[in-house]
Design a protein around this nucleic acid. Structure first.
Lengths: 187, 204
DNA sequence: GCTTTAAAAAGTAACAT
DNA sequence: ATGTTACTTTACAAAGC
């Protein structure tokens, strides 16, 4: 039917950056609308952006983690908003802070059902974990792109751990060819 | 000299005591679960291997011991669910599951997915169901699994639904609640698995 | 190791209706 | 009996316990 690569959809992008300045989270929490800060529970201050939708974790060191965005462009847009909000509070923020993508979560569809039992036994000696009593997905750790895939009986999958969108495409190709050469694609 | 000597004896004694504790725990839990002595021996062997491979560092002896017993039951073809095992352990289910996956991975235990049929004799016996019902349940499991219905489903819920369906087909009806209780799954799970299994084999 | 954030997959569970 | 919400798994950064 369709090339599984065409079904790939980015669901979440995690990135880190920093404003190059230490922060007094207590005062930021006071002035920033919608900020959640509970140092007893977690050292970071949580700030959510609406458009693009994301959550930023702001730390005392000035380092920031952005998660929830649907693309790397959205990560940049969300962080631009966060930077400007901090500047509105008279906080010095570096000109163009380096933003590093740490993880990209994608979903895809192989287009046919999978016999996870057969795959677990067939690829049993590889980096596979399938414990349906604990989780319905089969965990497949790849070496070449260094990502982890969760395969489901429906043929849908989740790929996480990648740093570039291409990692997911490569992973899907490798998974499909691996299952094909072992005759495990539907059976 | 003497101090070093005593220290060695101390650690050796401590290690020996820990091993004894682990083995006695395996024995206690195995008895509580009603599994044969052969399973305890397999569990002990796995535990000693884990000990030799230094897998216990950073983990509780109880957790590793329980995980070894869980793995041993599966290897011997008489699985106990994580919930059943956690019922006789002081370690919680989540920790047992995590430790089991870690130990199985590190020791390269070639664990195959649990076959739901392996739960049929015990569950059916607990429900006082006939041999006929058991055969029917096994038949349902094989037939529906072959059609791909098993992927991703928990073995206990799958077995429970097949037993429930078989009890109806053989006129030895048990309620969903009764079957759910022995399998330790919810009625909702039995209902869902039962519906798709029946649909797959066709009502008769 | 834990804590928090986000998101998907599919199964199971708890609690409400 | 059905519906809603929530938790299971994967990856990752941050600071601190």
């Amino acid at each position: 039917m369709v090339d599984p690569k065409e079904t790939i959809n980015i669901e979440n992008v995690v990135a880190s950056t920093g404003i190059g300045q230490e922060l007094d989270l207590q005062s930021v929490a006071m002035d920033l609308e919608g900020a959640d800060y509970d140092p007893e529970q977690f050292p970071g201050l949580v700030y959510r952006t609406q458009e693009p939708k994301s959550a930023a974790l702001i730390f005392r060191s000035g380092k920031i983690v952005c998660t929830g965005a649907k693309s790397t462009d959205d990560v940049h847009e969300s962080l631009r908003i966060v930077f400007d909000k901090l500047r509105d509070l008279n906080i010095q923020v570096d000109e163009d802070p380096e933003i590093v993508v740490q993880n990209i979560v994608t979903s895809a569809d192989l287009g046919r059902n999978l016999n996870l039992n057969a795959i677990a036994i067939g690829l049993g000696l590889e980096n596979i974990e399938y414990e349906p009593e604990q989780f319905p997905g089969l965990v497949y750790r790849l070496d070449d792109p260094d990502v982890v895939a969760l395969l489901f009986g429906s043929g849908k999958l989740v790929i996480t751990g990648g740093k570039q969108p291409e990692d997911a495409e490569e992973a899907v190709d490798r998974i499909v060819s691996r299952l094909e050469e072992l005759g495990l694609l539907d059976g | 000299r003497l101090r070093k000597w005593q220290e060695r004896i101390r650690t050796k004694d401590a290690g020996e005591r820990n091993l004894q504790f682990a083995l006695s725990e395996i024995d206690r839990m195995a008895s509580a679960l009603g599994v044969p002595r052969s399973v305890r021996e397999v569990a002990s062997v796995i535990y000693r291997r884990a000990l030799n491979e230094d897998l216990i560092r950073g983990r509780s002896i109880e957790g590793v011991a329980t995980s070894c017993l869980y793995a041993a039951c599966r290897q011997e073809g008489i699985p106990r669910s994580l919930e059943e095992v956690s019922d006789v352990s002081r370690v919680d289910q989540k920790e047992i599951g995590r430790t089991y996956r870690y130990v199985a991975q590190e020791l390269s235990l070639k664990m195959e997915p649990v076959d739901p049929k392996q739960y049929v004799p015990r569950f059916a016996s607990d429900l006082n169901l006939s041999e006929e019902v058991q055969s029917k349940a096994n038949e349902i499991i094989d037939e529906t699994a072959e059609k791909g219905l098993l992927s991703g489903k928990s073995p206990t819920g799958y077995a429970a639904a097949a037993i429930y369906a078989a009890s109806l087909l053989c006129n030895e009806k048990k309620t969903q609640r009764e079957v759910a209780d022995v399998a330790q799954v919810t009625e909702v799970t039995i209902r869902n698995r039962y519906q798709e299994q029946i649909e797959a084999i066709g009502v008769r």
